[in-house]
């Protein structure tokens, strides 16, 4: 059996990605120049976080079932809340949740939730495997809002879309979930969509990033920035 791969594995390797293990995850660590990627992340960077864990739950009992396992969902739909372990709990509706594993790999919360998922049926909380079905990218940096404005009809400026906001909308004509959870003072938008369209989304984003001098960045740069803001 081969290791789980990102749906854009071929595309990032063709762009010079170094794939390796970093902080417990096998993912793109860098594109050959981690130092430049830190600066690029602050300007406009695009990272493929697809190898990181994520899982969804739906059903009338999903909220309570997750709460009993220490995952605190926001009260309102279309909001995200960062958990103490760094994972992100997203309320997609009144009865559906999406949990994104912590950036710093070695995540256990998604594995733990998935392992115990059968128990949720008792209270009508049903797991939705999201690892294979959804790509997960992070668009970072000062120009991220302007870049998203080219691809998406929802106002992503901080006044209208502050940290913790979620939009389930059309991104480059794809259905996508957009989540703003900054790293310190650096804007970060998590983008998730159908993995079958991942290569198209990746290429569309890189194309839209050109005029802002954006570039793909690896996990090593994001981890360095995360440490900086701790």
């Amino acid at each position: 059996m081969t290791e789980p791969r990102s749906p854009i594995d071929d595309a990032v390797r063709a762009a010079g990605a170094v794939v390796g293990e970093h902080a417990g995850v096998t993912a793109v660590t860098d594109y050959g120049d981690p130092e430049a990627e830190i600066a690029a992340s602050r300007r406009l960077g695009l990272a493929d976080l697809s190898p990181l864990a994520r899982v969804g739950f739906r059903g009338p009992g999903a909220r309570e079932w997750l709460a009993a396992r220490g995952v605190e969902l926001p009260d309102e739909p279309n909001r995200a809340r960062v958990q103490p372990d760094g994972s992100i709990a997203i309320a997609r509706s009144w009865t559906e949740a999406l949990v994104l594993g912590a950036l710093r790999g070695a995540d256990s919360v998604c594995d733990r939730l998935e392992a115990g998922a059968a128990d949720g049926h008792r209270v009508r909380a049903y797991s939705l495997p999201r690892f294979d079905g959804m790509f997960w990218f992070a668009l970072t940096g000062a120009s991220a809002v302007d870049c998203l404005a080219k691809l998406c009809g929802v106002d992503m400026r901080e006044s209208a879309f502050p940290v913790g906001s979620v939009a389930q909308t059309s991104l480059a004509r794809l259905n996508a979930v957009i989540v703003r959870v900054d790293l310190g003072d650096m804007p970060v938008f998590h983008l998730l969509g159908d993995s079958a369209s991942a290569e198209y989304a990746w290429a569309s984003l890189l194309d839209a990033m050109q005029e802002f001098d954006g570039r793909p960045v690896g996990l090593r740069a994001l981890h360095a920035l995360a440490r900086e803001f701790e």
Partner: peptide, 8 residues
């Protein structure tokens, strides 16, 4: 659920 959105 999602607030005002383009009809598309």
């Amino acid at each position: 659920l999602n607030g005002p959105r383009p009809i598309q």
